[in-house]
Design a protein around this nucleic acid. Structure first.
Lengths: 206, 206
DNA sequence: CTTTTATGAATGAAGG
DNA sequence: CCTTCATTCATAAAAG
């Protein structure tokens, strides 16, 4: 990695908005904005995939009690007590999450019983998981996705530049409100390809 | 990773929508460009760190589990000293808080949907707030109120409790427990990042 | 400035 | 499906 060694300087963009009017403010066209969005999206993809990679790599070597976050049944036999705290809440690994998201985004809002079984089977290759987990996940995902959609459509051509309001909170400011650029194709096979490409693009950005 | 540490840029032009040249393309201000650039910089940083992490992981191939499975961390790069992330959480004003507390104490254990809207409406007169904020507030308030009650008298009645690992010390468990060891590499506490962060970043692009 | 605490928000699971 | 709860995560605010 060497892209972080760039000297500090201001973002320089191709001056294609210089129409000779004497105005020298730097602006971006829709096209440029789109490019930037794609770049960021590409980074998101890479980051996700790298995390997955790490995750699965780690899980290979980590058979021990994983610290927080990971599933782990506390077989702590209720020693002499009548209360056992089975701290056990499934936490999808990044790999599993990606798969789930993909399936969810593929439109099929119908996770039928059979599909659940299939999905569970697939996810099991990346970590402990049960059908109930999958069922719940889709249930929650759908409900929350829906709930988010119902809010914050009141965003017209408002520009926060002039308002002076520091709060980005218009209505419901949730990260998942809309996904206009929810990652371009998350095919994990394209990692290397995307990696190189983005690297190059980043350089051109500066 | 220093290239994002740049001095305040010089050209700032708040208004640049129409320069009178008849060109009607959408444009971005320097500030907006700066935001985008920093977002990309953040991704670059993350990717770089992840790659390094991966390298060190790979080098110590069959080592003991390098718990990077559940990377937990704070900021997703704090550059320049600007808050460019849209990750801002709502903080009730004293007035709002007072109103909320009053409503909560009024016994209404039922902050139903309609009430939420009403309350939100009222609080909006005292500051920016959303229904989700209110919903969360009551949710948290109830949960924590409950937990506090069950923790208070548990001080001397601990005789019944087993010597289990879990030690409900009353309040919250110490977060320090979660970082027994991280990667055996340098500055390991800096290269954590969470999936959620990336998601938020991406979505905040809009 | 660093560490700790308080609390807004995210989410898996349970109930209806 | 929808609501509610419990637990955890992340961060603004407070403490040192």
């Amino acid at each position: 990695m060497d892209w972080e060694n760039q000297p500090p300087h201001q973002a320089r963009l191709p001056e294609l908005n210089d129409n000779g009017c004497g105005v020298n403010n730097k602006v971006m066209t829709d096209e440029q904005i789109e490019i930037l969005r794609k770049q960021i999206a590409a980074y998101a993809t890479i980051c996700k995939q790298l995390v997955e990679l790490h995750k699965s790599l780690a899980s290979q070597h980590d058979h021990e009690g994983v610290r927080l976050g990971n599933l782990y049944c506390h077989p702590i036999v209720t020693s002499g007590g009548h209360k056992f705290m089975g701290r056990q809440r499934w936490t999808p690994t990044p790999v599993q999450l990606q798969i789930l998201e993909r399936i969810f985004d593929q439109g099929h809002g119908t996770p039928s019983k059979h599909n659940i079984t299939e999905i569970t089977s697939e996810l099991s290759q990346h970590g402990q998981v049960s059908e109930t987990n999958i069922y719940n996940w889709f249930q929650n995902r759908r409900a929350r996705s829906k709930r988010k959609q119902q809010a914050a459509p009141a965003n017209d051509a408002a520009s926060e530049m002039e308002t002076g309001i520091e709060s980005p909170n218009g209505k419901k400011t949730k990260p998942e409100d809309f996904q206009p650029l929810h990652i371009p194709s998350s095919r994990s096979e394209d990692l290397c390809f995307q990696y190189r490409e983005v690297s190059a693009e980043i350089h051109s950005l500066d």
